[in-house]
Amino acid sequence: MSERKKPVAKAKVKAGIYRTGYIVAIILAVVTGVEYYIATHFNSFAVMMLLGLVKAYFVVNYFMHIKTLWTEEESH
């Protein structure tokens, strides 16, 4: 994913960015499955929170593009 290093707002206008959406959604789904599995088999608070943070990272970074807060956008 070469878009990663560029300012997100600019990357937003590239057609390839659609793919990021799929990938993030799949990762989130997989982690949720893992969460469910661990919860029903082991019951660990720490692991649950950790997995929650992993999911949060993906949402905040790729869906909410928090980076736009500190990267400059170019005017068109």
Partner: peptide
């Protein structure tokens, strides 16, 4: 969009807290 993702983000922590932990 970011508001909606935020609502999702909250659920990321609420779901295990309600359904999975303990």
């Amino acid at each position: 969009a970011i508001y909606w993702h935020y609502v999702d983000l909250v659920w990321i922590f609420f779901y295990p807290a309600l359904y999975l932990i303990g």
